[in-house]
């Protein structure tokens, strides 16, 4: 479904070059929920921008359903971390969700249904005429998720979507993502720096090394499919997996830095 092969990204800056991503290769099957976890500064955002077609890689390819990604593909939606800056503040919640559909020239009646369904799915059916900034952070991020859901993508990319919301809201949103994923059968690539979150959410966790980035480990998460904030997180297996990912990340951090020019 989604295949990243030999991906490399080097930024040109005045002081020389910064190698953000060195050599990344992995595949994601249709319908999978994969988490990518790595230490901060591991080039996670760069990777996501390359996959979504926002940035051109220096070398390597990203392929979606057999077609190479050179610009943002139609079958993909992205949810960014900065919910406050990814929603249009001059549009109501409904208009925000509807805009991509309008842009795709989806007929009005169909648009209406899709928007209502998406808002209901994130439990925001009651505030369609509010402006995003009138809502709490968690609710704003749910609007962004509703917008992505209404767009009916085959692949949903999420860039640390819950990094800026409080812990309680975060748990709710994690369960929301699991339920949307099951209901829609969409492929989800979820980037996070939170080890617990990656293990709790994913079927697979890809651990990235520190910059310059390579795949440190590709780990299958063999937790039961029904997950629950309380029992799953307190299970012994969850603890083992979390410990394993944690070790891998520590290992990644301690590895010697080579090749990259550090600026500031």
């Amino acid at each position: 479904m989604l295949s990243v092969s030999g991906l490399k990204k080097v930024y040109q800056v005045d002081a020389g070059e910064i190698e953000a991503v060195r050599n990344l290769t992995f595949d994601i099957d249709a319908g999978e929920l994969v988490c990518i976890v790595g230490p901060s500064g591991a080039g996670k955002t760069t990777l996501l921008k390359c996959i979504s077609g926002l940035l051109a890689p220096t070398a390597g390819t990203v392929t979606l359903a057999g077609k190479q990604v050179t610009e943002p593909p139609k079958a993909m939606a992205v949810v960014f971390q900065e919910y406050g800056r990814s929603l249009f503040p001059w549009m109501t919640v409904r208009d925000n969700v509807e805009l991509p559909l309008k842009n795709q020239r989806v007929p009005r009646a169909e648009r209406e249904t899709l928007v209502n369904e998406a808002l209901a799915a994130v439990e925001l059916g009651h505030v369609p005429d509010s402006y995003p900034w009138q809502l709490s952070g968690g609710m704003q991020q749910r609007v962004a998720i509703a917008r992505a859901v209404a767009y009916r993508p085959q692949v949903l990319l999420m860039d640390e979507p819950f990094a800026a919301v409080d812990a309680q809201t975060r748990a709710d949103l994690e369960d929301l993502i699991r339920s949307i994923w099951k209901k829609l059968g969409v492929t989800i690539l979820f980037v996070t720096h939170d080890i617990d979150e990656s293990v709790y959410l994913g079927q697979r966790v890809i651990v990235l090394s520190n910059s310059p980035t390579v795949v440190q480990e590709d780990l299958a998460i063999d937790l039961p499919d029904e997950r629950d904030q309380l029992s799953t997180r307190s299970s012994a297996r969850f603890g083992e997996l979390r410990g394993h990912v944690y070790e891998q990340i520590q290992l990644a951090k301690s590895k010697a830095q080579t090749g990259a020019v550090r600026v500031k």
Binding site: K49, G53, P72, A77, E82, F88, M91, N103, Y151
Partner: peptide, 28 residues
């Protein structure tokens, strides 16, 4: 805003639509 601009691009809002829904209201 850069994030808003990226968001528009991922939803393939370009050209005149970008001007109408993103650039003009953003600069208003």
């Amino acid at each position: 805003d850069q994030v808003l601009s990226d968001t528009s691009r991922t939803y393939r809002i370009t050209g005149m639509a970008r001007l109408r829904y993103l650039v003009l209201p953003g600069a208003s």
